Amino acid sequence: MTVEIVHGDSLAVAQGLPDAAFTLVYLDPPFNTGRARTRTSATAPRLGDRATQTGFRGAGYARLREDLRVYDDRFDDYWDFLEPRLREAWRVLAADGTLYLHLDYREAHYAKVLLDALFGRDCFLNEIVWAYDYGAKTKRRWPTKHDTILVYVKDPARYWFDSDAVDREPYMAPGLVTAEKAERGKLPTDVWWHTIVPTTGAERTGYPTQKPEGIVRRMVQASSRPGDRVLDLFAGSGTTGAVASRLGRHATLVDDNPEAIAVMRRRLPDALVTLPG
């Protein structure tokens, strides 16, 4: 299976990809942690200017975005960055395809509301909670130990989902089920208990935002078939490519960070690499 690594801006690269080419699109964008971000749009509409900003669902989306801006002025900067990339991800998604958007608690609630308006609530499939128990803890509040993965399908009547292909996990109370069921394990729910990449783990690359293969594997197993094409617009350490190729899928990995490209080239030595210029 082919893996292509593309060094470039995710929006520019996505705009050059063909329509409906990918069965699965995974986006793990930079989280809006309060760091300064350069605005990608200097002409965002002001409150009341309903006509200048519309989404796939028209004025309803525009109004929601304007209303959310009132509550959090930092949100608009982040959405200016993320929204056009989501539009392109939706365009290149096949009719039976699935989009996974991986966020943390700072943006997940805003994103859910806007994605419902942008793509339609009928296209919403799941909110996956990835829970882990590692890293620094605070005693001033409940420690934050989860990410959110929002799942949307291009066509609710046609999307591909293969529960039989997904790795199973142990029952939390195996004594409450038959021995046969306990032996087989259960299908994961929308809460995934999975450790982060261990410091000394074999898959660790040293890339700071690396996601564990076990998390990405479930998405690829459930929402694509062998021979399908998978796209990751914020590829980072290349986990999506490593998983997809091992499962017999083609993968296109995009990142504009030279460090990420270097890590992916080491991790995926047989990948095709497209460099700037």
Results as ranks from 00 to 15, higher is better:
Thr40Met: 09
Thr40Ser: 13
Ala42Thr: 13
Thr43Asp: 13
Ala44Val: 05
Pro45Val: 10
Asp49Gly: 04
Arg50Glu: 12
Thr54Cys: 11
Thr54Arg: 15
Gly55Cys: 01
Gly55Glu: 00
Phe56Glu: 06
Arg57Pro: 03
Tyr61Gly: 11
Tyr61Thr: 07
Ala62Pro: 07
Leu68Ile: 14
Leu68Ser: 09
Leu68Thr: 12
Val70Ser: 14
Val70Trp: 08
Tyr71Ala: 15
Phe75Cys: 05
Asp76Thr: 14
Leu82Gly: 10
Glu83Ser: 07
Arg85Asn: 01
Leu86His: 04
Glu88Arg: 06
Ala89Met: 02
Ala89Val: 10
Leu93Tyr: 00
Ala95Ile: 09
Asp96Ser: 01
Gly97Leu: 00
Leu99Glu: 05
Tyr100His: 02
Leu101Glu: 01
Leu101Gln: 00
His102Pro: 04
Asp104Trp: 10
Tyr105Asn: 04
Arg106Ser: 15
Arg106Phe: 12
Glu107Arg: 05
Glu107Tyr: 11
His109Pro: 05
Ala111Cys: 03
Ala111Asp: 00
Val113Glu: 13
Leu114Ile: 05
Leu115Ala: 03
Ala117Pro: 11
Phe119Tyr: 15
Phe124Cys: 04
Glu127Met: 10
Val129His: 09
Ala131Cys: 09
Tyr132Leu: 06
Tyr134Asp: 11
Tyr134Asn: 10
Gly135Lys: 06
Lys139Leu: 08
Arg141Val: 14
Arg141Thr: 12
Pro143Gln: 02
Thr144His: 13
Asp147Asn: 10
Asp147Ile: 06
Thr148His: 08
Ile149Arg: 01
Val151Glu: 12
Tyr152Asp: 04
Val153Ser: 06
Lys154Tyr: 11
Pro156Ile: 00
Ala157Tyr: 02
Trp160Val: 09
Trp160Cys: 07
Phe161Thr: 08
Phe161Leu: 11
Phe161Gln: 14
Ser163Ile: 06
Asp164Ser: 13
Val166Asn: 00
Val166Thr: 01
Asp167Phe: 05
Arg168Phe: 03
Ala173His: 15
Pro174Met: 12
Leu176Cys: 08
Leu176Ala: 12
